[in-house]
Design a protein around this nucleic acid. Structure first.
Lengths: 249, 249
DNA sequence: TAAAAGTCAACCAAAAACATTCAAATTCAA
DNA sequence: TTGAATTTGAATGTTTTTGGTTGACTTTTA
């Protein structure tokens, strides 16, 4: 990996989260600690970040565009593993739907750049553009809490596309109730995206299993699940109905 | 493979890719390392890319159009005056189209909050939401330079709405050629928005007068112009065809 | 507070990438 | 067709980058 590429990744990450751990960057870039340390020193000298014990922190002047709220760093690690694997399934030239939500968002740094992405996640666009990925955004009502695009107009936009692969975030995965999410409007968008896609994947960490929320999206059989550590017993319970790929460090 | 051909390949790849590895180019062109190195040196001398260890990186100035940030520092004061007046025309309950672009953007802080806004400007959304304004975003291709939504999908989205008022940014205003903007795709969106609106306003500082750019949007008579200081003579020249509101401090 | 764990800068040797040189191959003009 | 000029690929020795190791330093844990 080239130096400017690493630098870009570091700075992009700092746009989203106030701090980065050194180890995160080592994983993300497949470089050694030494290399990342040197990168951080350089970027600090250029006044693009501030080094702190264990990693680096964002400077004030980047604060102009505060984007995504920092989630608990514990989940981020797991989500990133899931995201990395999920992204590895995408091939050059694919047309891909990336759902709004934090786990799908984490896929963006790992995406191949020669693809077309359609998304209903407003927050995703900046990251996609900085990866130089051709990006289409659905239209619609902007849901203030999640900044997802929903509603009739989003549905209409979506109908113009067909996808090789789509990657969904969900809030609940349950053997009886299938995939669920709290907002019916978001559920509708997800449902349609699924019908327009050849290979459907749900990306979800283990906390989503055995949960049920208000609005039903689809049956378990309608998607392959990509997740992290999960209990053997629970696993078999689900595997009757769908395929589960378990990713671990 | 001929030299100009290789150069084109290199530059094309950099348009898509931010960085290229030397080895990539060796494979892609079936040339030797030496040859590619020489190519890169030449292209660097022509200021078309930057060499980095292991390959080459794209320069900033390959972005054709000035970006949002650069633009917004110019003429901010004047634009804000124009924007403030324009916003004062909006009444509670109106449905309003706010065009992508910096002058329309400046209106957002002055908007009444009990309205519905539709926009094709990605950058506007954050600001609109922080004002607690109900916001619809058009779908479509995200133009990387201006973060405006354009294309067929944007057009389709737009057809779902009707507006009491719309506020357009333009790049050129000319007695013979009417309103113009550089990008034909953006022009198409603006055109449609105009036909869907009862009261059409163009917000533009004086620098736009007597300018003509590539794509025609509409005739002068199709919109009322809101601008700042402007020469009396020039004013009368335009007033045969349209109404101009001049705002001053 | 002391031990343990984690993080750090500095150093080193290996690997990768580099500029330079030169001869062969190609192109062009006479 | 010949000869000069340009372009190309390989060989050379040099420079940069990289990942591992060291011992010093900082933070966390007990």
């Amino acid at each position: 990996m080239l130096e400017p590429e690493r630098h870009q990744i570091i700075l992009d990450l700092l746009k989203k989260q106030n701090t980065v751990k050194l180890q995160e960057l080592v994983e993300l870039t497949n470089s050694s600690e030494s290399t990342i340390r040197r990168d951080l020193s350089q970027l600090e000298k250029q006044k693009l970040l501030k080094r702190v014990h264990g990693g680096a922190a964002r400077l004030q002047n980047m604060l102009q565009e505060p984007t995504m709220v920092e989630k608990s760093s514990k989940n981020v690690q797991e989500k990133r593993l899931i995201a990395k694997y999920a992204a590895s399934l995408i091939e050059e030239g694919d047309s891909v739907y990336i759902d709004a939500g934090t786990t799908p968002f984490e896929m963006i740094p790992f995406l191949p750049s020669d693809i077309v992405v359609v998304t209903n996640g407003l927050m995703h666009v900046e990251a996609l553009l900085s990866r130089n990925i051709k990006t289409f955004l659905l239209g619609g009502y902007v849901k203030p809490t999640t900044k997802a695009l929903v509603g009739r107009s989003a549905i209409e936009s979506l109908k113009n596309f067909r996808f090789d692969k789509c990657f969904m975030g969900v809030n609940g995965i349950h053997p009886d109730y299938g995939f669920t999410t709290p907002d019916p409007e978001e559920a509708t968008v997800k449902q349609l995206a699924i019908t327009l896609t050849r290979d459907v994947y749900v990306v979800a960490d283990e906390s989503k299993f055995s949960e049920v929320t208000f609005a039903r999206i689809a049956d378990l059989k309608d998607a392959m699940i990509i997740t992290n550590a999960i209990d053997k017993e629970i696993l078999t319970q689900y595997e009757r109905e769908t395929t589960i790929k378990v990713v671990s460090a």
